[in-house]
Design a protein around this nucleic acid. Sequence first.
DNA 1: ATGGTTTTTACTGCGTC
DNA 2: GACGCGGTAAAAACCAT
Length: 328
Amino acid sequence: MSENVRSYTDERSRRETTESETESDSERERVECPECGGKLVNDSERGETVCRDCGLVVEEDEIDHGPEWRAFDSKEKDQKSRVGAPTTNMMHDKGLSTNIGWQDKDAYGNQLSGRQREKMQRLRTWNERFRTRDSKERNLKQALGEIDRMASALGLPDNVRETASVIYRRALDEDLLPGRSIEGVSTSSLYAAARQAGTPRSLDEIANVSRVEKDEIARTYRYVVRELKLEIQPADPESYVPRFASDLDLSDESERRARQLLQTAKEEGVHSGKSPVGLAAAAVYAASLLTNEKVTQSEVSEVANISEVTIRNRYHELLEAEEQVQLN
DNA sequence: ATGGTTTTTACTGCGTC
DNA sequence: GACGCGGTAAAAACCAT
């Protein structure tokens, strides 16, 4: 097994453990700065743990500590919930709402008069109406919480969350939910929103913070896009560049070169059919060569989640395209 | 389902520090 | 000898049909 692959999987499992840790709410007990031994301060607003003395950022991109009411399964729910009657998950509203019996009998078991029967029927109808409206509200609430959680885990700005919520609402209104999970649809909404906003996240990144499998996200995403007739162009490779560049601590100059490479590639039409992420990664790598700020292929492949081979193939093409343009 | 294309995986060889 | 890089064949994933 190659070195690259091993560190790849290490990275993966590391991420998973931190996530589950946060979910089970167990706080990391790290109080001393590894650099200077100073005291660590948790800046939850920016999602960082910072050393007060030397300013070292120990941990970034923490998953935000969402509202307390979020619970993923019944076990967790029992632990977190503090109030209310015992509930059942069998009903959409956990059996907490009022139900009006169907037997047309009063509390003593006597038949109701015709007039009373009619009245009860009307009440049943209305009660049902409010109840389903209620269930949509709940549904929405949960979905929005989910969207918020994932968005902050991915460092996506507010406007993306807004868009995601709008998409989700539409999906809900058009009855796209039945047969699909709330998580799946909210994840897809977020994915779509991120792409629409020009700050795309790859399917893998999304899948990492979501509770549903990649396949399902992709499937649901396609479905939602089709049904809502969302118009989403393939992601622009350039939109990945800033993130990769900053992850690798590259200069603005390199970032500019990377952009430029991608643009000439676009003009030359080299890019069609290739994965945008791969292109972006290759451009960043090539740019780092051109500006002598060398980063290794494996470093780029790490932050971009793209294989080194792909980076190699793409960056040759990019440089070739660049040369062609130079000659003309 | 199928076939064509792209990406990944796994492995090998070469040069350099 | 480990590391970065290049290349290749075969498998896997992806996409349109």
